[in-house]
Design a protein around this nucleic acid. Sequence first.
DNA 1: ATGCATTTGCGAATGATTCCCATTAAAGGA
DNA 2: TCCTTTAATGGGAATCATTCGCAAATGCAT
Lengths: 147, 147
Amino acid sequence: MSDAADVLIEHCREAGQRITGPRRIIADVVAKADDHPDVTEIYRRVAAIDPGISLSTVYRTLKVFAATGLVERHSFAGGRVRIEPASDVHHDHLIDTESGAVIEFRSEEIERLQALVARELGFELTGHRLVLYGRPLAKVERRDLKR
Amino acid sequence: MSDAADVLIEHCREAGQRITGPRRIIADVVAKADDHPDVTEIYRRVAAIDPGISLSTVYRTLKVFAATGLVERHSFAGGRVRIEPASDVHHDHLIDTESGAVIEFRSEEIERLQALVARELGFELTGHRLVLYGRPLAKVERRDLKR
DNA sequence: ATGCATTTGCGAATGATTCCCATTAAAGGA
DNA sequence: TCCTTTAATGGGAATCATTCGCAAATGCAT
Ligand SMILES: [Mn+2]
Ligand SMILES: [Mn+2]
Ligand SMILES: [Zn+2]
Ligand SMILES: [Zn+2]
């Protein structure tokens, strides 16, 4: 039981939610996930620990965690929602279109420009979704980067 | 039958697709749509012209149009796909979280930074998805914009 | 006009997510 | 520890958007 999971559980309790067996396990699985798994994958990992936990409960619990801000739900291309534990520092994602790998990044400038663009349009930016899709550069194509 | 629709039909023909009655009508409806409608809404508009056209055909035809690059499919929040006729100049969207309105914008700088970030990560940017969510500023909050 | 490959309409099938509800089990106090 | 209250669970049905399968209809090149 990682301490990251303990944090999830603690926040959960503070939000007035009951701490149940399934929730402990789901919190643990989510806290350990560093690969943006989809719900079915989380269900698999949870079931490996306690096969009695239902898919319904996984969905419900993730929704509770998301509502409490403990978990983020992404919808990269392809129907199913993907999950990651909420991180203290916001980041966006780049998808390797050849391998499907998810790379995280943070661009201070893009973040700032987004808020600026929104304000120019007469809005206060409340959120955003940015996903880049890219093809890995061959080694020889990378030479110009080193300079 | 707008000329924008004719363009769709013409590209469709060049792509080796047959020009059918349903396709003409769907092309016309899509070409006129300036509000990012979902598929069901397009179906409604199509059915208002020819009630015999099926939802399946609308889905299939939109897929064909999208594959040929005539139509873009967005997946803003909320399950269903939303459609817009492909425009010559790329743009991104800001969603007014209070009204649900979709505002279009284009930021040269953000576009450039995206490519830059991708390259720094070792990728050639092949696409991206950017959606901003914002709350409309009250008039009094806008004063600092005029400067 | 004829023949054939594409399209279409309709209904069934899918896949992800949510809903329903009888049963189980936290939480808090006696 | 033993109740009481009430939220959470499991399992299955229900939803919703989208896709499939296939016989019938229809473009289009000849
Ligand atoms: Mn991430
Ligand atoms: Mn648009
Ligand atoms: Zn961001
Ligand atoms: Zn863009």
